[in-house]
Design a protein around this nucleic acid. Sequence first.
DNA 1: CACGATAGACAACCTGGTTAACTATATGGA
DNA 2: TCCATATAGTTAACCAGGTTGTCTATCGTG
Lengths: 154, 154
Amino acid sequence: MSSHGFELPLRLLLAFRMLIDELHAELARQGHPDIRPMHGFVMQAIGPDGTTAVELGRTLGVSKQAAGKTIDTLERIGYVERTTDARDTRRKIVRLTPYGMDALNRSARIFDTLRAHWAGELGEDRLNALEADLRTMTPGNPWRLDTPGWFGNL
Amino acid sequence: MSSHGFELPLRLLLAFRMLIDELHAELARQGHPDIRPMHGFVMQAIGPDGTTAVELGRTLGVSKQAAGKTIDTLERIGYVERTTDARDTRRKIVRLTPYGMDALNRSARIFDTLRAHWAGELGEDRLNALEADLRTMTPGNPWRLDTPGWFGNL
DNA sequence: CACGATAGACAACCTGGTTAACTATATGGA
DNA sequence: TCCATATAGTTAACCAGGTTGTCTATCGTG
């Protein structure tokens, strides 16, 4: 009967993917064709002050090796750069390049635009209620991103 | 400024992952410890009448080879079986085993329970509104699952 | 100053995706 | 009837992103 419960997770995933797909279509148009969805999350986690591979792994909930590999690819496509820490020569500080910061700034603006589109469709009140309800059901600061394994390995 | 728009996709992902994690924790308790999140989606796509690798790939939006690999692992852990089609010996029909159907039935009941939990927290009206709004923003039948690449390869 | 803890790199492996190439079978038209 | 083309499935080589284990270099403290 009902089995209505199946729809909720599916719609949540679909909605997430729609927003991400639209973000990246627009980013591609704005000069960032090579960026992948996860790169945005990683750069967000790197933040304006930079971080290290170990720290990034902890923030993201993945191993330091996985974080290191992701930094490698981000470095290769020009979004981050590594500099050695003068006070601790073991550490390598990973920082966003101007190109990386540009991607992050554009992402923020595009997400705002997409949210405005949702507000236009649903009404600001309904959208606020939706966000409030999601916040109720997913406690915690989403910026921490400490969903171990987040996407992938599903 | 706000940059408020970042929160929506993050919360959608977090909510999706919460539901999926809870589903699989419960499935493990109920005798399905080896099933992975994507297996549920694939079995859903296989459906009660069975399908073929090519068809499944089309439904899922992945290559027939990828669909074939997934069927291999599902077969190995006992959730599906392959039988040859008498009327077209090229085709191999993939069908859920009783164990596979059990997993699907349990998933449906667990999702209903999780939805009931959400209804308890948010109220049935708010949850209905949330689902209606997600439906508005993600048109189409979510059972088609034709999100090309769905999760993974983000 | 030596030893334990930490940062990073490297290797081997897993999964789920890709494309390309191949075999076997089906099917429709000359 | 036979041949050409299309289709189903398999295999292989590769990629990305994850894992664990091991190794080196450096830090910092007792």
